[in-house]
Nucleic acid binder design. Structure first.
Lengths: 228, 228
DNA sequence: ACAGGCACTGAACGATCGTTCAGGCTGCTG
DNA sequence: CAGCAGCCTGAACGATCGTTCAGTGCCTGT
């Protein structure tokens, strides 16, 4: 609905595309920031309201309820991720499912919001993850054709696992900061202590060939045993 | 009402090692289950109390405050993980940092509690993660010597990344269930749709050799550029 | 000028939160 | 027996929660 308050210029113009100042957008952005910091249940409507410099009643006026606000945040973040995704596709670096929107500095902390809400079950975020995986399947099929990626028997499984790992590291960015002194929700340029070992694993693998064959054999044995 | 007040032994004997029935332990286990389900902030003291069949006041009597209860839960889960870890070390399968305690069925859902509290910052859980990483460094050094793992220039970085990925997938177990129809916090025997692609990545890698060299070169270029 | 719609607020509602308090019950000790 | 120490409870506290509502001021259409 977006509202778009009557005119197009005088008081507040959302017409500037990205950086609008309408109260509704201000509340939504403040909510994204608050939810990213303390989680949805850990944030009160009053906190969001005061962060957006409005009254709590106005939050209800625009979004109906706290759940409505949360849903609006989910949808906004999801569409922002989708936009960034198509940008990334154009740039050709589609490997990283969220790399494109790695903090554009301006605007609300989308990545930190994602990292928080990935764990407390939102349907919008869930279908966003599903999209990420099926997109990754496509990108990685391209990657196999262009010689970037090795072929695999289970393309969807591999895409799902890699997406889970990437998003999981994002969710645990607090621990990543403590362990490796990197900021996974911030500038990727600075995250080499994470990216380099990750790249090595994705490139060379971590397990030796003979051990891999042995473990795989053991797995398949238990699999057949379970079927019997 | 379970209660078991006076008989069976003096008042309360946690001396039975694992399966004690003292009210304090019952409250703690109920809290772990509730926190695992709805998160710490999403769970009220009354909910925990009614789950443990006691009054809310008794919770305060035993733990002082909700924060005290949460700390007791953290410590209990941490020590349980440490116990399971030494067991796993004896069995020799130390690769998986949490594989040992993968739901012993009996007792509180430790893994689900871990998956929840990993994201909302507890010092006990944080130092538990630190321990996991330094343990992984040791285990993986052994693995390199025994020919299980490939050597690496950055053993700690690799251990940290693998730990982050494993724990991250655990945290996102809800998405893993939806995507791959596996239960990462449950029986590992059934989680093959996750383990097989993961094993393939860790064994063969996902990126081709020439692409790996190219990307690595690009990374190091940006690194040097950043230094200049 | 007037009516109507819209963004917006201050104050308050009931519910629920974490926490406190006075006291009851039970079993051990002297 | 009395006294005491413990586990444990029901009732209540003030704070804060999400939400409601009546009303104010600005803007627009006629």
């Amino acid at each position: 609905m977006r509202s778009v308050p009557a005119d197009a210029a005088p008081p507040d113009t959302p017409s500037s595309g990205d950086a609008d100042l309408t109260a509704r957008a201000r509340i939504r952005d403040a909510a994204i920031a608050c939810f990213a910091d303390a989680g949805v249940v850990g944030t009160s409507v009053r906190t969001v309201a005061s962060a957006a410099d409005v009254s709590p009643a106005l939050v209800m006026h625009h979004f109906g309820s706290k759940d409505g606000l949360r849903g609006a945040c989910d949808q906004h973040v999801a569409s922002a991720v989708r936009e960034g995704k198509t940008d990334a596709m154009r740039q050709g670096l589609a490997m990283d499912p969220v790399g494109a929107l790695r903090q554009q500095a301006e605007g609300p902390p989308l990545l930190r919001y994602l990292a928080r809400t990935l764990v407390d079950g939102s349907e919008h975020v869930a279908e966003l993850v599903d999209e990420m995986v099926s997109d990754a399947v496509g990108y990685m099929a391209e990657g196999v054709e262009t010689g970037l990626l090795r072929p695999t028997d289970d393309p969807r499984g591999r895409a799902a696992v890699l997406t889970l790992w990437t998003l999981g590291a994002l969710v645990l960015h607090e621990h990543a900061t403590r362990l490796l002194d990197v900021d996974l929700v911030g500038d990727p340029q600075q995250a080499l202590p994470y990216f380099l070992p990750a790249l090595e694993i994705l490139g060379r693998g971590a397990i030796t060939d003979q051990a891999y064959e042995r473990i795989r054999g053991a797995f398949e044995a238990t699999d057949e045993e379970a079927e019997r």
